[in-house]
Simulated scan of single mutants.
Amino acid sequence: MARKQYLVTGMSCEHCAASITEEVSRVPRVNEVDVDVTAGSVSVGGTDLDDGLLRAAIVEAGYEVAEAVAA
């Protein structure tokens, strides 16, 4: 399983985590989403993950992707 990890700005609570998890889970081939509000990170597991779709899902949830980091 491939993993991608992003630093995300604007998250402050569990509602933020739930919103991101819901949107990112809709992206094709995503099997797992882990959101760490304290660290400001989102880790995604799946197969053949599309970086553009993952970033768009985070933005759709109302947050900004600061940068992608090595997973």
Rank of each mutant, 00 (worst) to 15 (best):
N31K: 15
D36I: 11
V65C: 08
I20P: 00
V8I: 08
V42I: 08
D36V: 13
G45W: 11
I20S: 01
A39L: 15
T21F: 00
V65Y: 10
G52W: 09
A68C: 08
E22K: 10
T38Q: 14
V42C: 07
I58K: 04
M11V: 02
T38V: 15
Y63P: 00
D50Q: 06
G46R: 04
M1C: 06
M11N: 03
G62H: 04
R29Q: 13
P28R: 05
G45Q: 12
Y63K: 01
A57Y: 02
A61Y: 01
R3V: 12
R29N: 13
M11F: 02
V69Y: 06
A57W: 01
G10L: 04
Q5A: 12
M1R: 09
L53M: 15
I58G: 05
V35N: 00
P28S: 03
T9F: 05
E64A: 14
A61Q: 04
V35L: 00
R26E: 14
S41M: 15
A17F: 00
A61E: 03
G45Y: 09
S41L: 13
T38L: 15
Q5I: 11
V24K: 01
M1Q: 11
V27N: 01
R29F: 10
H15S: 11
G52E: 15
A18Q: 11
L7R: 15
D34G: 06
D48W: 08
E22F: 07
Y6T: 06
A56Y: 07
I20N: 00
D34L: 13
S25I: 03
H15L: 09
A18M: 05
V30R: 01
Q5R: 13
R29M: 09
R26A: 13
V37Q: 08
K4C: 04
